[in-house]
Every structure is written in C-alpha cells, then in structure tokens.
Design a binder for these strands. Structure first.
Lengths: 210, 210
DNA sequence: AGATTTCTTAAATGATGATTTAAAATATTA
DNA sequence: TAATATTTTAAATCATCATTTAAGAAATCT
C-alpha cells in the first residue's frame, strides 16, 4: 500500500517551525509544544514523524542547512580576491540578517556554538568545515603566500565575527543602538563598513607579518 | 539575636557556582541541582537564600559584574587614543579568555544577548551602556569629529565582536582550529592581531567617509 | 463498498527539575 | 547549660515538558 498524498505536509510544517523555534531559542529553551503549536499540529506528531525532540533537532539542522544559500566559491576566473571578499561578506551579511531560511541556519549554528548540545557532532565537520575553506582561501590569496596559517585564521575570525553582530544582537536592540529601523539600506551600509574595515585590516596584518 | 558567623558562606558558594553554571549553559539549560551540587549545598538552600532560580540568576549577574575588571577609561593625560585602544582591546581579550570571575560576566552577557530571559532588563542599561561609552569615546578620538555616530558605532561593533570570538567558540574547538593549546602567548598574539586589524580598519573607514 | 494503511488526536504516563515543608542540626546569647 | 535563632537536610509536592497509547478520522487500493 502506498503513502497518502497529503502525508508529508504536516511533517514539513513541523520541520519548518522547528527551525524557527530552535533558531530563536536554542535547544533547551525550545519546547515541543511551542513548535507543534506554530505548525498547527498535535504534539504526538513529533513522535510520529521524528521519534524525538533530539532527532527533530538534527533534522531541523539539516533542513536549515539545505535551505541556506551559502556563499559559494565565486567563480574564480578574472575576479580579484578583493572583489571576492566583497561578494563573500555581502552574502554573509545578507544571510545573517535574514530571519527565514538563510538566517535560520546561521542562528542554529551560533546557538550550537555557544551552548553545544552534542547532538550534531557528525554534521559539524561535514557542513561547517567546507564553508570555512572558501573564506580562508580568499584571505590567503589577498595576503600572499608569506603568511602563516594562524594569521589567516585570525583574519577569518575577525571577519566572521564582525558579521555575527547581526546574529548575536536582537533586532530591536540593534535598532535602539543605531536609533533607526533595520532597513535594507542600513544592512548594506553595515556590509560596506565591514568590507572596508576588513580589507584594510587584512592588508595591515599582512604587512606587519613580513 | 544576631546572625551566625558561618552564615553567608554557603550562600556565597552557591552564588559562585551559579555564576559558573549560568555562564556556561545559560539560564534555561542550567539546573538548580547542578548549581547546588557544585556548591556542596542542598537544593533547598537556593530557596532559603535567594527564593528563586530567577532571583539567583539576577544576583549572579550583579555578582559577576562586580567581580569583573572592566576596561576603565585609561587615564587620559598624555596617552594617544591609539594607545588607549591597544590597552582597551588587550583588557577585553584578557577578560574574555578568563574562565573565572572576569570571563563569567562577559559570558553571562553574551548568553543573555543571544537568548534573553527578560530577567535583567533593569540592569542592562545601568551596567552595559557605561561600558560601551568608553570604547565609543576612544574610537571617536581616533576618527576625528567629521564622522557620524553610525560610523563610530559600526567600528565599535567590529571591535567588540572580534573579541567575542573567545566567548563564542569553545576552548577545545578553538584549539582544534588553531592546532595548538590556548596559551597566554596565543591569547596575546590574538589581541595583537585584533589591534592591528582594527586600527587599520578604523583609519580606512574614517578616510572613506570624508 | 469494504479492507487496509496512513494520519491525527485527546488524554495518559513518565521524567526532570523547581519549590516547599517540617524536622534535625548547629551556632549564639544570656 | 538552657533558650533561641539560624542553617541544613531529606523527603514531599508541584509544575513543566517530553513521550506513549489507544482510539478515531481520512486516504488509498481492490
């Protein structure tokens, strides 16, 4: 006997709100009831479709990852590494400021970083490491070969953590600090700021290491 | 009848481990049982001394704040703002890498930022705002008067978030990434990196805005 | 339609963790 | 030391959630 047509709809609605709630509150503070409520589903559905809160969490991770548009290695060809960095930072900032699909994975990642559940140990290397490689490559190119892995890594951390501002600080707090609504324009200005700041930073660090 | 001499000892032991546990796991994931266990106290002691988990949390915040050595406004006098920034970043990094007293407040702050409990709304402005003012002042001085409040704020965010690397990433993960133990020396190199990176960043942003 | 399987639900059960209670232990003062 | 106040404890209670159950509703297939 085959599956029902409507079948997986509720399942995916649950998965969707799981992404939302876990991203917002982290694993512990999120409740199954909350997730199901948002999905318009009965709590038992979590067990039916996913067996567990923890299994749901893992699936939510994978789901959020799949849906996130990661800054891919920009087609090398004739683009200068500086330009690549610009593109990379812009896409990072765009992702991080997004509250759906894209932003969710980044938030899940941050929450796991800050208070690890230990549930996604396997995924970690598989998903995160390749993402890092891209930025590391770009930085290396900008700095030239003379420079140590440590220095490149420091620059990577400098850049990524600047961008994480948007994940760390609540929208309302950010708006309060900046005394203005979080418009697309503001986001773009922030991205440009980080680009200018970081390019100069990289150059300076590169120079001081030779 | 007066208080007992041994009285407040257990109380302060509980407060101490509350700082530890809350800093490590955040409000939700932390359990009263865990806190009391570490303090060698009975769970009921929390109620006796603090009435509540939530009240304990608030006190832990205040305690951690008091114990943290905040980067004070370096005595102005003849120190250049650049030098002030160096000192500031060093002390920030030192605090953030510390796992006792100092680091605890910074971690509590981060955890609250990332997933607010709403329990310390009052303290927020009172404690956090003054801290920010110092760095904002230094940056303003470096950039000169020509520059907008937004630009100064962006720089502030760039710097603080770079330093937050140490709060965000678990020690073991950091050691894995850097392929070396987290020595005092490494911390210092990181601080120096952030200083060089940020000074150049500030200058570049300042120039591009004139 | 009738048989079969998939979904959905309300309510029950269990587990974990916070909070309370009431009695026991320990210190202080006179 | 006796009287009194403070602190500590084990066990009970309560609340919140996660998880299971068992029965009903809705599709699908023959």
């Amino acid at each position: 006997m085959t599956k029902r047509a409507d079948g997986k709809e509720k399942r995916s609605r649950i998965l969707e709100s799981a992404c939302e709630v876990f991203a917002e509150k982290g694993y512990h503070a999120a409740t199954v009831a909350d997730i199901c409520q948002r999905a318009g589903a009965n709590v038992a559905a979590v067990n039916y479709y996913f067996t567990d809160k923890s299994a749901l969490y893992v699936e939510a991770w994978q789901q959020a990852y799949k849906q996130s548009s990661r800054p891919g290695s920009p087609e090398v060809a004739d683009i200068s590494p500086e330009e690549q960095l610009r593109i990379y930072i812009h896409s990072l900032i765009k992702n991080f400021s997004d509250h759906d699909a894209n932003g969710q994975f980044a938030r899940l990642y941050l929450m796991e970083l800050v208070n690890p559940t230990g549930l996604i140990h396997n995924l970690w290397h598989e998903l995160i490491e390749p993402m890092r490689k891209v930025l590391l490559g770009i930085i290396s190119e900008i700095m030239g070969a003379e420079v140590t892995a440590e220095t490149v890594l420091f620059c990577d951390m400098s850049i990524v953590n600047q961008c994480r501002t948007l994940l760390t600080v609540r929208r309302s707090d950010l708006e309060y600090l900046l005394a203005q609504p979080l418009s697309v324009d503001l986001i773009n200005r922030l991205a440009d700021h980080i680009i200018t700041f970081s390019l100069a930073g990289i150059k300076a660090v590169g120079k001081s290491k030779n």
